[in-house]
Nucleic acid binder design. Structure first.
Length: 306
DNA sequence: GTACAGGCAGTAT
DNA sequence: ATACTGCCTGTA
């Protein structure tokens, strides 16, 4: 743990926009992970924030019901982070972001929860996404009392499948409600199966996901990256589009040497595919990690200028 | 009032 | 095949 890139900061990782159902109560963070409630706290005796960046030992991890070593799973501590990040040394912007945000990690989410979460994330704000998911958990999840506080687990695909469209609508997803129903149906019928998707290649898994109503290029890439172990997935949302437009001008040429034109906010599905291929070749099989740092950099440093 | 928020599907070309 | 357009809903 000598390289600054190996520091581990769960707080910044949780707050980097991948995760929607976490919040801080007093000095602890609580989150919903499928049917488990997770919690971590700063170890009081640690010198974190005094003179060094946080490390693994500065935190204590809890869960209910007990989930063995969940922190290793969620924060991907099993990845060789130094090796992965050193693979981006040819890129100045990502390298800068890695130095700027030591301890930022890609998170490994619970797959079903991840799928529903990003279906809800279609064309809306983080605040609204959090509200929808909270409402869905409250209405269709199970109540759990932990640390004397009330939590609700994430609803199962079965429950959401049995729920009526209007019941789901009362949780606030609007037109995304039909997408939630479509996803629940595919999962219950096992037309969409997590273990199967994990075994498939990135491309084939993505094809399957995109057959679901409400899952397009971007949402499929989020699901693949955050829950299906496809670390080459590189979700291109509006922030990443802006980053690519502003800092990666060379991307604007396709293989026929034609200039790809797009205004800085929108890309077409064809452009998405083209840019995705190029950027994955450029960043390699862990492109998703690069995306994570780019995304966070854009939100933190450039966000207020837009 | 209306523009916008971490895209998408349906329809028109 | 590719481009254009409307969309739930709450907030600024």
């Amino acid at each position: 743990m000598t390289d600054s890139s190996s520091f581990f900061n769960p707080e910044i990782s949780i707050n980097s926009g991948q995760m929607f159902q976490w919040h801080k109560i007093n000095d602890s963070w609580y989150g919903v992970y499928g049917d488990h409630i997770l919690k971590f706290s700063f170890r009081k005796s640690s010198s974190y924030s005094e003179c060094h960046s946080p490390e693994y030992g500065d935190f204590e991890f809890y869960s209910y019901p007990e989930l063995e070593k969940w922190e290793s799973r969620l924060f991907r501590l099993d990845d060789d982070i130094e090796k992965i990040l050193s693979g981006f040394s040819h890129d100045a912007l990502v390298s800068e972001a890695i130095r700027e945000y030591p301890g930022l990690r890609l998170l490994r989410q619970e797959p079903h929860q991840c799928m529903f979460s990003f279906v809800c994330a279609n064309n809306t704000s983080i605040t609204m996404i959090r509200r929808m998911l909270s409402n869905l958990s409250r209405k269709f999840g199970s109540k759990v009392i932990y640390d004397g506080k009330e939590f609700f687990t994430f609803p199962t695909a079965n429950t959401l499948h049995r729920a009526t469209l209007s019941e789901i609508c009362t949780c606030g997803p609007g037109y995304r409600s039909t997408s939630i129903k479509a996803l629940a149906k595919s999962l219950v019928r096992e037309e969409l199966d997590v273990k199967h998707l994990m075994r498939l290649s990135y491309e084939h898994a993505k094809e399957h996901l995109m057959e679901i109503h409400g899952i397009g290029n971007k949402i499929a890439d989020c699901i693949l990256l955050f829950s299906l172990e496809k670390l080459e997935a590189f979700p291109i949302d509006i922030w990443i589009t802006r980053a690519l437009f502003n800092y990666y001008g060379w991307l604007n040429q396709n293989k026929d040497n034609e200039t790809i034109r797009y205004n800085r906010d929108k890309i077409t599905p064809k452009q998405y595919t083209q840019i995705s291929e190029t950027i994955r070749r450029y960043f390699g099989k862990y492109a998703g990690y690069a995306q994570q740092f780019l995304f966070y950099h854009m939100r933190e440093e450039v966000g207020r200028e837009w």
